[in-house]
Design a protein around this nucleic acid. Structure first.
Lengths: 218, 218
DNA sequence: CCATCATTCTATCAGTTTATGGAATGATGG
DNA sequence: CCATCATTCCATAAACTGATAGAATGATGG
């Protein structure tokens, strides 16, 4: 009986490691690919020391591992299923917390009067790719694209969008993706490309979810 | 950019609600069926006041809802997927924390030299039920059995096991189940029934997982 | 082996969470 | 409408968590 509670306490410790916004941001970055403490601190907007401390916390919970590479420590998710865990947490939260809905709609607030910008589902994307009717656009930073991306995706980091329009087809629909459902990069890209006359929508998921589903990556 | 972090903070708030062993115990009980504060306090071994406080916490996180019924407040899980979420948390923790493995083996420590007591998987159980070769035994308290159970399961609460042996077949294999993977009731039942000469093994999951998988219940 | 760089460790402070006991609330049954 | 019961609210103390700054560690390149 007492062991039973010890077990739940240990499980709670893992959940508690997920119970901090900064640590979720770190995990989200790690879902894009392995990274050094400095890289992680930059993307999560933390000081190096603070990021290191949060990473220790995640390590104690068994969610990440670290490995030295020269001067740097490279962190990595211990388990592909952590992406699924975060996805399920997100789904439960979105369904049951009104607050979530408010924040999501604020994050993606824009003028989509016609509803044409509705996101592309995974099945829809797979069908479009199979038929060759869709071109895939990865708007994440080059470093994350290099660490892994959807098959045949073209990489144009958002900051260089207008410089590299030459790489985009005008005759096919474009589907843009980025880090995940809450990532605004692809959303921003869609807005700007539509202004320029492209047919473009955003993928409702991101690279980590695609990979965690066991779909092929490059 | 700032909204992005707000979203993760809200998500973290939900994860933090899972980050306490007592609250996990409350959720585990709620996965068996709706219950009053008093019932919940008893099964989680908390004072009423403290249980109420934890339930408020779960309510703020959108994980449970409460509804008055006469003098009592009846609590309920808001979402069937919470069971999946807890299951995935468990899997990730078991895979990546050595501590978990130690605790699990301690919880189920016994002398199974032959390995015959290995737990029955869901697929195996479904096959056994389809062919009629297996009798199902639910060893949870009657109240939880009444709130829902696997089809054709016989209910013998663990405390009354020896009194009610008459209900059990000697000619078929018996599969015992209870509240979930960490519940010791079915494990204890298997030990005792084997001493008495029954052919019996335990189901590796429990009622909540069965229900969450969309399988039929009674 | 010295200087540098990346990271971790340590101490400290402010803020948050938890358990406890007792008061307040809300529904019920005479 | 009073007494009772179930639950929630409130105040408090103890334990824990998170951010910061600076010292310590460990690998590297000259």
């Amino acid at each position: 009986m007492t062991s039973q509670q010890d077990l739940l306490d240990t499980l709670a410790q893992v959940a508690r490691a997920l119970g901090n916004g900064h640590r979720l941001a770190l995990l989200e970055r790690l879902a894009q690919g392995d990274a050094s403490v400095e890289t992680l601190a930059n993307t999560a907007d933390l000081t190096i020391g603070n990021a290191s401390q949060h990473l220790q916390h995640l390590r104690r919970a068994g969610l990440v591992t670290a490995q030295r590479s020269g001067k740097q420590m490279i962190y990595r998710l211990t388990d592909e299923r952590i992406v699924n865990l975060l996805g399920l947490l997100r789904q439960v939260a979105e369904t049951n917390l009104a607050e979530m809905e408010r924040l999501v709609s604020r994050l993606f607030a824009e003028d989509d009067a016609d509803g044409v910008l509705e996101a592309v589902s995974r099945d829809e994307l797979l069908a479009g790719l199979a038929s060759g009717e869709v071109a895939l656009l990865d708007v994440r930073p080059e470093e994350e694209y290099e660490a892994g991306h959807l098959p045949e995706a073209i990489n144009i980091p958002l900051e260089r969008l207008e410089d590299m329009l030459g790489k985009l087809p005008k005759d096919r629909e474009i589907v843009a993706y980025c880090r995940g459902p809450y990532c605004v990069l692809s959303h921003e890209a869609v807005q700007r490309l539509r202004q320029l006359g492209y047919r473009v929508r955003r993928f409702e998921e991101g690279y980590p979810e695609w990979k965690a589903a066991g779909l092929p990556i490059a």
